[in-house]
Amino acid sequence: MVIIVFFALAVICTGAVLGMIFSRNQATSALLLVLAFAALGGLFGLLGAPFLAVVQVIIYAGAIMVLFIFVIMMINMGQGIAPEKKKGIIVLACAMAIVLLIELVFAGRGSLPGAGVTGPGVTPTDLGRLLFTTYAYPFELTSVLILAALVGAIALVKKREP
């Protein structure tokens, strides 16, 4: 039963990314990506990370992708931009990507076999305890990071007074 869910999510995810590659409209790409990230959230859930699954859907598929769509709206590209037409680049890139894929599979071959994922995952309670005990300090630091990003983004985009 679980394996069916896994394959369904994997197919949705891969398909969405493939669709994004071939679409010429940025808004379509972004919406396909929302689908892909949502599916990834489901996969996180299968891996026993319910909290991260929810975070993935809310933050990534929600907030970040909305940000993308905002920017796409502001930069109105009209007809959109067709994918690369030069065959050379695509062939080269695909060749390199396949080489890299082979290398990566080879590098991770030790973890390929193995029993199925079982047992309870990490509950939100456990995660919260970890965050506020062992990782309290980095956790507080992330707030500084986000604040810095906020200020930076505003400073970048703000129109200079003439």
Binding site: V2, T14, V17, I21, L43, A93, S111, L112, P113
Partner: peptide, 24 residues
């Protein structure tokens, strides 16, 4: 149940698709 290796392979596939997308 699903072996963790499946998830790993899926992640690699997605990664390579990301690379291809970047160039396309």
């Amino acid at each position: 149940t699903v072996p963790a290796g499946y998830f790993f392979v899926l992640s690699l596939v997605l990664f390579v698709l990301g690379i291809v997308a970047f160039f396309v």
